[in-house]
């Protein structure tokens, strides 16, 4: 690869574009592809799309020999609603797993920099924040407030998006009540079933950190197994 290609690739990644580096394994030549921006239906472009969609780099056979398609998808994002104790543990764990984390909580005493040093905080109301953050297929949304006033607007926004994971903290009883409220708000049972609740894999978690681990485990399973 030459320096200019490397610079372009890095620039594309910083602007969060879905980009593919195609390398001819015989002669070493490179090509940078933006298959979702370039509407040309070439063989390389459509193969590159498959690679990005499945989040898997792959080698393909072309007329010019074997070509390796390395994929650079934009970062995974996690939006945590509720700057609560579990969020303090979950945010750094998710960051270590390469998620861009934002903690959303309009309550100043919760969402303070003192409680969340080095974490992106958003003090807006959850539905308002989510509208500008534009959750997508590479995003997970987790509600942790236990408070319908804050959780519900976030869940409604989440259900209208194509995020890969929605999780809501709360017991089975809380879950049943939430289900009724969302039905009343016009969502179908199928739609509501996208919400993972009680949140997290059942590993007997007790402390905030353990619950954060169970949430990260469920998030990972959902992300990787869908492929």
């Amino acid at each position: 690869m030459n320096f200019d290609h490397l610079k372009e690739l890095q620039q594309a990644r910083l602007s969060k574009r879905q980009v593919v580096l195609a390398t001819n394994l015989i002669n070493g030549s490179n090509q940078i592809l933006y298959p979702f921006e370039n509407k040309e239906e070439t063989f390389l472009n459509s193969e590159a799309k498959i690679a990005l969609n499945t989040d898997k780099a792959r080698e393909i056979e072309t007329e010019d020999g074997p070509v390796f398609l390395n994929i650079f998808n934009p970062p995974l994002r996690l939006f945590i609603i509720g700057a609560v104790h579990i969020a303090q543990k979950l945010a750094p764990m998710a960051a270590a797993a390469a998620y861009d984390v934002t903690v959303i909580d309009p309550r100043r005493s919760f969402g303070s920099e003192f409680r969340f040093p080095e974490v992106t905080l958003d003090g807006r109301w959850p539905d308002e924040a989510l509208e500008t953050l534009e959750p997508d297929r590479r995003t997970a949304i987790v509600t942790l407030t236990h408070d319908a006033k804050l959780d519900d607007p976030a869940l409604k926004s989440a259900l209208k998006s194509d995020v890969f994971y929605i999780g809501a903290l709360g017991s089975k009883r809380t879950k049943a009540k939430r289900h009724d409220r969302l039905i009343e708000a016009g969502f179908t049972g199928d739609e509501i079933s996208r919400i993972h609740g009680p949140i997290g894999l059942d590993i007997g978690a007790q402390s905030p950190a353990e619950i954060a681990i169970s949430i990260m485990a469920e998030l990972t399973a959902t992300l990787r197994r869908k492929q």
Binding site: F3, L6, K7, L9, Q10, R13, P75, A95, A96, A98, D100, V101, E118, V119, T120
Partner: peptide, 22 residues
Amino acid sequence: MTQNLDMAAKDDVLLFALEWRE
């Protein structure tokens, strides 16, 4: 946001390659 970029940079192979080259 700054922090998240820093976190990503820790593992960012291409970023290091670019910096070394530069």
